[in-house]
């Protein structure tokens, strides 16, 4: 902005509610599962795991979309919103419109992918090749959607989509493996290693995000400090960082060393809990800036 201004906390605005937070989580898990399934299939490994991921993605994306619709103005708006191509026309500038298209296409591809895996597997590889970029796009877009709201400083960083992508992948892998419930360690090793690496990245990325976001100004510092040391600190440090990231990292490391897979479902559940907490922290911990134009 050209003019001098002063930024303060916006008094009493209507925040986005739990629907959006849950949607971003489910969309992340769904797209992560889709990516897992597509990669698994493309690398020609475990079809059971690929199938679990492919079956998991469509219902999660559908539930997420329904939650998204629930947040809208009313029945009429919901019905209209379902006609994505007619309603979401502003794809040139709006990430929500783009997201709606991405979500629609991803959902269709995910359904087709799951269907092809369930019946004849002729088009599976082609669909997997399609599903992979779409899954990544969906995961990135949830971050870009939040980033698009420029005046919520907590969201206003290019790191956010990457963070969401990482989280989508970890939760997607965790959910897929949870559903697949493969017991043999040997089949899981590659996945566990990937998950461990991603979790390590997340363990660095998440706290780092809240430290670097301070560049976005006082309001960002305020929301970040509420999360790091204020009202949300327990959710952040205990639930997200400790239960959702540290414990799974230690657990997976333990499993990789000892090769005992019995406790794995618990770690996967913790990863999912961590992902959910992350989304809720971002949606509820956000403070909207109010720009006072000092003209």
């Amino acid at each position: 902005m050209e003019f001098p201004y002063y930024v303060m906390e916006f008094p009493g605005y209507q925040r986005w509610g739990w629907e959006i937070a849950l949607y971003i989580f489910l969309g992340g898990v769904g797209s992560g599962a889709l990516i897992t399934a597509a990669v698994t299939l493309l690398l020609g490994k475990e079809t059971k795991i690929a199938r679990a991921g492919a079956y998991l993605a469509p219902p999660l994306l559908i539930v997420g979309s329904v939650l998204l619709l629930l947040d809208l103005a009313g029945i009429k708006a919901m019905l209209r919103a379902m006609l994505v191509p007619l309603t979401f026309t502003n794809i040139t500038t709006s990430w929500m419109a783009r997201g709606a298209w991405i979500l629609l296409v991803t959902l269709l591809v995910a359904i087709a992918f799951a269907y092809s895996l369930a019946t004849d597997k002729r088009y599976s590889r082609t669909l997997a090749l399609l599903a992979l970029p779409l899954g990544i796009a969906t995961a990135l877009y949830t971050g870009l959607l939040l980033k698009g709201a420029r005046f919520v400083p907590l969201w206003n960083s290019g790191e956010l989509p990457l963070l969401f992508l990482t989280s989508a992948l970890t939760t997607g892998i965790a959910a897929t493996l949870l559903l697949a419930s493969v017991k043999e360690y040997s089949k899981l090793r590659g996945f566990l290693a990937a998950l461990l690496v991603l979790l390590l990245i997340e363990a660095i990325e998440v706290p780092l995000y809240f430290f670097i976001i301070g560049e976005q100004g006082d309001i960002a510092v305020k929301s970040a400090s509420a999360i790091l040391s204020g009202a949300y600190s327990i959710a952040f440090w205990l639930v997200l960082m400790f239960l959702g990231i540290i414990i799974p990292i230690l657990g997976l490391g333990y499993v990789l060393i000892t090769r005992k897979a019995a406790a794995l479902p618990a770690f996967f559940a913790l990863v999912l809990l961590g992902g959910l907490t992350l989304r809720f922290l971002f949606v509820h911990g956000a403070i909207k800036a109010f720009v006072v134009p000092l003209i």
């Binding site: 103005a73 919520v152 109010f290 720009v291």
Partner: peptide, 30 residues
Amino acid sequence: DTCIGCGYCLMACPFGAPQFEKGTFGNRGK
């Protein structure tokens, strides 16, 4: 007629101009 009440404009406006009446399911209206 075309607004679906997503609330994205509220998040994007620096001045808090967009307003929402209470709508369905306790969420915002148009």
